[in-house]
Amino acid sequence: MLESCLLSCKDVAVIRGARCLLSSLDWHLHGGELWQIQGDNGAGKTSLLRALAGLAPQSIEGQLVVNSEFLFLGHKTGVKGDFTALENLKLQLGDGAHYQTDRLRDALRQVGLADYADEFAYRMSAGQQRRIALARLFLVDMPLWLLDEPLTAIDVDGVALIEACIEDQVRRGGSVVYTSHQPLKLDLSSRTLYLPGKGQSPHVA
């Protein structure tokens, strides 16, 4: 049972310092599922997502198993101002050398940055910088995406773009977990993990 899950939580609590954000989380995530983590400000959405990505080992109690490779996109984009969009994409992909430059340019074109590939990122707006980070979604084939507020600073076109991208990932059998106040408008069955905050147990819907 556990082995077939991409990710499973058993009696997990997220504790930041002396404050318990959520507790007794039992949650299993399988391939092809789309999950929205929902909750008020300070309910622990970002903390939980970061914990899933392995960025908060000291804040976690309980048993949390991540059985797959994943792509994590946080509030911060990881985009460096002193590099061009293309260079940034190469850096973010890790082994950027393995990708053909044409493919990278194509990905930048898909996020609407065709004319900005060789532009320094510090000259771009926050939304454009975020699009550089999003271009990764078109290139890597990871079974699990963990996206923290993916729509921040993104315009209407961008939202449609991300929605299409996520839809594609789920249809291919991949999974997406994202935090957001509003659900994405997708023709997919989406499930919700609602965090009531104040250390209470989340509802799975």
């Binding site: 990505a53 392995g54 490779e69 994590f72 911060k76 984009t77 990881g78 460096k80 973010q92 890790g94």
Partner: peptide, 17 residues
């Protein structure tokens, strides 16, 4: 500082590197 501020360190830690 800059790698912390722009999220580069996060990406380093979540990567397999």
């Amino acid at each position: 500082r800059s790698d912390y501020d722009d999220g580069g360190l996060e990406q380093l830690v979540v990567s397999d590197d």
